[in-house]
Design a protein around this nucleic acid. Structure first.
Lengths: 137, 137
DNA sequence: TGGATCGATTGCGAAGCGCAAGTGAAAAGT
DNA sequence: ACTTTTCACTTGCGCTTCGCAATCGATCCA
């Protein structure tokens, strides 16, 4: 098993090879911001990812080391997904993308919890540190 | 002509609908960091984008208002692409993705100019301000 | 006028997508 | 014990997008 070849030595191209599609970062979002941990929770997000695509993305992200997959010790049917430190490292990028997206829509448009948006805007690094604590204590 | 429907009211999903693929952000990268302005320059990047895909991405990014397209006044064959303020607004996100990508590879791996990387690491906002000046005076 | 350049478009096979239905293992219900 | 439900996928299918090579029309240059 040889790791797939890189398109170039650009770190951005490397990143896009791992999650440059319309779904991967939404799964990361659900993990980072919403604290979701299970297949059915990701599937229930309003964007409506197809289950075959979700299954594929979870596998790829696990292979890439961005998340961890483990059986739920209390229920043999369930699987728990969680962020790795590497995966959480994308949080600053996610935040910038969210802030950019917010700036593109007229104020008042429904979106993420106002409290989170507020925190991100006035103290980005503090908000990220708070998220880190939530995930890693 | 009605604008395509959004998958959700999430600003990240909105962003990914515009450039959530393996190529769009590389075109933005070439504009923001390399100062490329012409079709053939984008096509010459080491990742080797196919010309039909490049043509499509330039069209989409222009439609989305991230870049501008104008004929070269000095050569009727040529077209000049340039960043809009909206497109440049993605620079912080690009930088975070680049920094993340850099952290995933062993030090010493070839990549972007060391001077840019240095500047991004120790004064991200200053580096972005310098890029802004380069594009908008 | 003939050839080169530029920014595309076209054609084609392969890969990936969205959607709906189905599967197997494990838990819950009776 | 046995049936039903839940859960995390997997499968099948038609459609879209992809990568790749060839080609195109318009424009510039000799």
């Amino acid at each position: 098993m040889t790791s797939p070849q890189r398109r170039s030595n650009c770190p951005l191209a490397f990143a896009l090879d791992l999650f440059g599609d319309r779904w991967s970062l939404l799964v990361l979002r659900d993990l980072v911001f919403a604290g979701k941990r299970r297949f059915s929770e990701f599937a229930a997000s309003p964007e409506g990812i197809a289950t075959n695509v979700l299954s594929d993305r979870l596998r790829r992200l696990e292979e890439a080391g961005l998340l961890r997959r483990e059986p739920d010790p209390e229920d043999g049917r369930k699987v728990l997904y969680s962020l790795t430190e590497t995966g959480f490292g994308l949080t600053p990028a996610l935040c910038e993308l969210v802030l950019w997206g917010l700036d593109q829509q007229p104020p008042g448009t429904p979106g993420p919890p106002a409290q989170l948006v507020e925190a991100l805007r006035k103290d980005r690094d503090g908000a990220i540190a708070a998220l880190r604590r939530k995930h890693f204590g």
